[in-house]
Design a protein around this nucleic acid. Sequence first.
DNA 1: ATGAATGCAAAGGTTTTGCACCCCC
DNA 2: GGGGGTGCAAAACCTTTGCATTCAT
Lengths: 172, 172
Amino acid sequence: MTKSNRLPCGRSAPRENMSRKTTLAELRSKLRGHVETHDLKNSESRNKILEVIAAEHSHFNAQELVKRVVAHSPEVGAATVYRNLPVLLAAGVIQESLVQESGETLYELADEDHHDHIVCVDCGAIFEFHEEVIEKAQDKVMSGLKFRSVRHKHVVYAECGYSPKSKKGSRS
Amino acid sequence: MTKSNRLPCGRSAPRENMSRKTTLAELRSKLRGHVETHDLKNSESRNKILEVIAAEHSHFNAQELVKRVVAHSPEVGAATVYRNLPVLLAAGVIQESLVQESGETLYELADEDHHDHIVCVDCGAIFEFHEEVIEKAQDKVMSGLKFRSVRHKHVVYAECGYSPKSKKGSRS
DNA sequence: ATGAATGCAAAGGTTTTGCACCCCC
DNA sequence: GGGGGTGCAAAACCTTTGCATTCAT
């Protein structure tokens, strides 16, 4: 669960994370802007949550965030975290990363540059990729069908092939 | 919710559903084969569920299926439906279609030909598409990163632009 | 007969909500 | 001081499970 260059499967990241991770200062600024323009208030708990998120360099789900927030600031309740997720999304502090096949939503620090994801079926590690050819082809398909593409989620489930463990006939 | 050529937004399908929908007879056959080879039994309830699924020409989630099954055969319990979902998946009767951003899993009749999905952000209708250029580019990216692609989910959220209703600033 | 399958209801796990209180602007 | 924000606990929701019973082979 901790983040280094070495992934759970023993493999290092396929390439440097493509997206530069936003700094705490930038996140604070984003949140402040949103708060100011939406008649919200600058609350202690929300800032605590922001700090925890800023320290997060990976993809996380709501429960994990709750756990980390509580570990960081025990006085903050789970409900507060849940109530703030939509705010932080709207503020552009975080964004939905992907929805797992199990149905759980993963979030990540909001980034400017779009990327898609690879989920390792061996070890669960999540990688990022971006391929302009795909993006272009997709837009072409959409406009051909008279749709206006708003956003997309492209997730590839793949064997990283590095994991000696959990090799349970993953040929689905 | 009923299926015609006309979609909720008032627009007709962008093209015929690309994948031929399996017939009830074929589904029965698939199920029978699975049952026989797995020491399962040919149960009444499971067949009822199969009938409901066969009548389904769209994407559905577990709860909807439960509702339809109960409407069709009130004596069948929700637990039975849930317990049979994995069986029907394993039998190749249904397959996971996509996971909504809300986290709910949608299923569809299993098909041979792969396709991806477009979700209309205006009306929620789900369309299918397939673009070989994308598939090829994706495989190339994966092999370049030393992954072996197992499966993927590519969902494009797009404005169909036909819906006069629910036009709530969908410029995310 | 024997184990799969079921219905019902209870339990589980996660997210949401009601409510009284607190705190920011 | 007024409304946003919060903590706590209850409620909601969907899915899973326990158990006694029924059913298929």
